[in-house]
Simulated scan of single mutants.
Amino acid sequence: MGSMEQQPRPRPRPARRTALTVGRVFGVPLHLNTSMVLLAVLITILYAVFARRQLGLPPLAGYVIGLGFVVSLLGSVLLHELGHALTARRYGIGVRGITLELLGGYTEMERDAPTPRADLVISLAGPAVSAVLGAAAVAATLALPDRTLLHQLAFQLAVSNVIVAVFNLLPGLPLDGGRALRAAVWTLTRDRHLATEIAGWVGRLVALGTAVAAILLTLYDVLVPLALPLMLLVAVTLWRGAGQSVRAARMSRRFPLVDLSRLARPLFGVPSGTPLAEAHRRRDAHHPPGAALVVVDAAGRPVALVDPARVAAVPPARRPWLAVDEVARSLAGLPALPVGLDGERVVEAVQTHPGAQYVVTSGEDVVGVLHIADLAQLLEPKRKMNT
């Protein structure tokens, strides 16, 4: 399954803690997710059983052939994703990398396509590559002698590439066909957010259809039972991706509401060495409780931010005897956001540097502190937040 991940987007980036960077292809970083090990084992076993039955090969040869098929399949997925990546570059969109994982792969781009036409062309580039590979494999299958090793490998590559091309053209996000649907609706409505939301809901229908089809095909012995969990995992992944697309569209609509000058909490400074309880008493007497408590130097400049999480861990009985410095973090170690940054850039910066608090600056001056919970509440007012 191929897909594209674009920035900025109001959700966490795909985690790379479990991915291994293996090099670059045409200058694009290539990552392998550790889930590929599971895929390699599963497909190797399935294909080894198939090869032994069809070709009468010994077990070891079957597993070697199965592993070779996995490598060929990964190459096909990589070429599919390169279709997205290289086409995106032609439209001036940077590509952060390509990741191959359990269910295929995805291409992570630095920003959205600028026009519906660009979105459509970039989306269809991947399936087009898979279709060409599938056609070439079909031609090789017809040309090679039947019931031979090369014939079976060509046949399986033909089937896999055709399935990848056709499945990715289904009209629902996060599939490539969903992006094509979004481009079409975007063209008609001139509203990218609405188009994304519609394509996301259609993607949920595609996910449900995939699950139902997998179960029915298994019941009618068209799909081997061992493949059913993988297909259901595909359906669950599609459902989650579609839901994230709907969520992203709703959040993106609220980007213009992000105004750091109003959203950032004001500062209340206390000198270094002030007892924690006394610092809170002074702040509450002069500012609302939500004001950010900071430690200031002798010149009155803020140098450290009192961390609410660390404060909460201090028993009330200790607070009169504990200096604010003990529960403060240096402002130099916190990400900074210029006060004039628009909503889209704020979200991109937050995703690039995840954290709970951000320093809001005007020139060289610190003018406030942004709490990520406040930004989340603004972008998703109906979503329950952990407190």
Rank of each mutant, 00 (worst) to 15 (best):
H193V: 04
F155M: 15
L188I: 15
T187H: 13
L149F: 08
A213H: 04
D176C: 11
L226T: 15
G172H: 05
A213Q: 09
D221E: 14
A214W: 03
V206P: 06
A248Q: 02
V236T: 07
L157C: 09
I163T: 15
V166C: 14
E197F: 11
L217E: 12
Q152G: 10
L169A: 06
G172Q: 01
I198A: 06
G209W: 03
P229W: 04
A248W: 05
G178Q: 02
M251T: 04
L230I: 15
V234C: 05
R253L: 11
W186Y: 10
L228C: 01
D191Y: 06
R179H: 15
L217G: 12
T210M: 08
T196Q: 00
F167K: 00
D259P: 12
A248N: 07
V236L: 13
M231E: 11
V222G: 06
V236Q: 08
V222Y: 02
L217I: 00
A154I: 10
D259H: 14
A227H: 10
L216C: 09
A213Y: 09
W239G: 02
A158I: 04
R179W: 13
R250K: 15
L208C: 01
V162S: 13
Q244F: 07
V224R: 15
L230G: 00
L157D: 08
L260C: 07
L263I: 10
L181V: 08
P225M: 08
V159F: 05
D221R: 15
L188N: 11
T210Q: 00
A211S: 01
L153G: 07
D176S: 07
I198P: 07
S160D: 00
L150P: 05
L150F: 10
E197R: 11
L238G: 07
P256D: 00
F255H: 11
T189I: 04
A248P: 10
V236I: 14
F255V: 09
D176P: 14
G172R: 02
A242F: 05
R254F: 08
D259E: 13
V212E: 06
G243Q: 01
L226N: 00
V185A: 09
A180E: 11
Y220P: 00
L149P: 08
P171K: 01
H193P: 04
D176I: 06
L149A: 12
G241Q: 04
S261T: 14
L175P: 13
N161I: 02
F167D: 01
A184H: 12
T187A: 14
V162R: 05
P256H: 03
L226H: 01
G241W: 04
P229E: 02
G200D: 02
T210E: 01
V164R: 00
L153N: 04
T189S: 08
S245Y: 04
A242I: 06
L150E: 11
A211H: 03
L257F: 10
V159R: 07
L153Q: 10
L205F: 13
L263H: 07
M231K: 03
L173D: 01
A235G: 12
L150C: 10
S252V: 00
T148D: 13
A183K: 04
L188S: 14
L260P: 01
L219G: 11
L257R: 14
D221H: 14
P225V: 14
L181T: 07
A211K: 03
L150A: 13
R190A: 09
A184V: 15
R204A: 02
R262G: 12
V162M: 15
I198V: 12
L238V: 05
R262T: 15
M251V: 10
L208G: 02
V206E: 01
L208H: 03
V222T: 11
Q156T: 15
